[in-house]
Amino acid sequence: MSEITPAEWTAILLSLRVAVVATLVATPFGIALAWLLARTNFWGKAVLDALVHLPLVLPPVVTGYLLLLTLGRRGLVGAWLADNLGIVFAFRWTGAALACGVMSFPLLVRPIRLSIEAIDRRLEQAASTLGAAPWKVFATVTLPLALPGILAGMVLGFAKAIGEFGATITFVSNIPGETQTISSAIYSLIQTPDGDTAAARLVIISIVLATGALVASEWFARRATARLHGN
């Protein structure tokens, strides 16, 4: 199998950039939401929970189309953002990151929520009797104990983001150098008569990245268990 071409490199690097940005931006929101779902009870919690999981079960093309309707250049929110803040998502790599962030959000939130639920709340009580205000309890006890779950969620979310296809291509199309990720590059290549070899190279790269992410996620999950047992 021959070498990776510059065009393929562009797609690989763009995928990495899109997935890294999507994961880093989504993580704080993911932690906040996981905490809300794990620890609080409020009116509409079931609806919020369902909403978070929606991208997992909706056809990706539907998610992408809804993003286009709301955040596209003529979308309700998109038009406002473009006119007032100069932020444009449509047909930009930032839009790809947004689509990937939304699609990977359920996978990011779940492990974080589970790890927060697994924390012994009596440890947090102990921290409060030692003088820690609620936000300090969160920062010094809850967050460190949930860290392996947070990392596992980030790895899973990253893996999902790097492979996302349907929502991305619907929302920001398939523009080489701007929105063409590995997935959409593979899609384009298998539509062209001589694209098989190049497609195969990208397919192998996707498999390597996805497998690596799963192994890393598993490793973090094991660390989490060890950490909660105080070893």
Partner: peptide, 20 residues
């Protein structure tokens, strides 16, 4: 007054040391 402002120490039956 919330627990963190009481300055009352508490030793629990199960110690509750921070595992991390």
């Amino acid at each position: 007054v919330p627990p963190h402002r009481r300055r009352i120490g508490y030793v629990f039956q199960d110690a509750r040391l921070f595992p991390h």
